[in-house]
C-alpha cells in the first residue's frame, strides 16, 4: 500500500515536472494539474495511511484515521481547481491576443512596454 502510493506520487510529480518544462501553454497547464494531483495524494498520506478506519467518531470504532489531512486536501483541491481555471483562461486570452501559445517571451517582447 505505502509503496503503491509512493510510486503514484513520484510518477505524478515526475510527469508533472517534465510537462511543465515544455514550451507550449497546454502541456504546462497539464503538468501543473498533475503536480497538484501529486500533492493532494501526498497531503493525504501525511496523516498516515490506515485502511478501514473511520474519520469521525463511531461507537464501535477500533481506531481512527486522521481527519485533518482530508480537510486540508479538500481546501487544496478547491484552490488548485480555481487556479487552474484562471490559468486556462489567461492562456486562452494570450493565445487569442498573440496568435501563438509559446510560454517564453523573447527579448523584444520583454523590453517593449
Amino acid at each position: 500500500m505505502e509503496a503503491l502510493i509512493a510510486i503514484a506520487i513520484g510518477s505524478l510529480t515526475a510527469s508533472g515536472v517534465y510537462l511543465m518544462l515544455r514550451q507550449r501553454t497546454f502541456p504546462v497547464i497539464i503538468g501543473l494539474t498533475l503536480l497538484s494531483y501529486a500533492v493532494n495524494v501526498f497531503i493525504f498520506a501525511a496523516g498516515r495511511i490506515v485502511p478501514g478506519l473511520p474519520a469521525i467518531i463511531a461507537k464501535d470504532a477500533a481506531g481512527y484515521t486522521d481527519p485533518l489531512p482530508q480537510a486540508l486536501v479538500l481546501t487544496a483541491i478547491v484552490i488548485s481547481f480555481g487556479m487552474t481555471a484562471v490559468i486556462v483562461l489567461m492562456a486562452l486570452g494570450s493565445w487569442l491576443e498573440a496568435g501563438h501559445d509559446k510560454v517564453d517571451m523573447d527579448e523584444e517582447e520583454e523590453t517593449r512596454a
Binding site: 501543473l32 494570450s94 491576443e97 510560454v103 517571451m105
Partner: peptide, 12 residues
Amino acid sequence: KDRLRAGVQYIG
C-alpha cells in the same frame, strides 16, 4: 498581448 503573456508566466 504582452501583459497577458507575462501574466501566464506569473501564474505558472
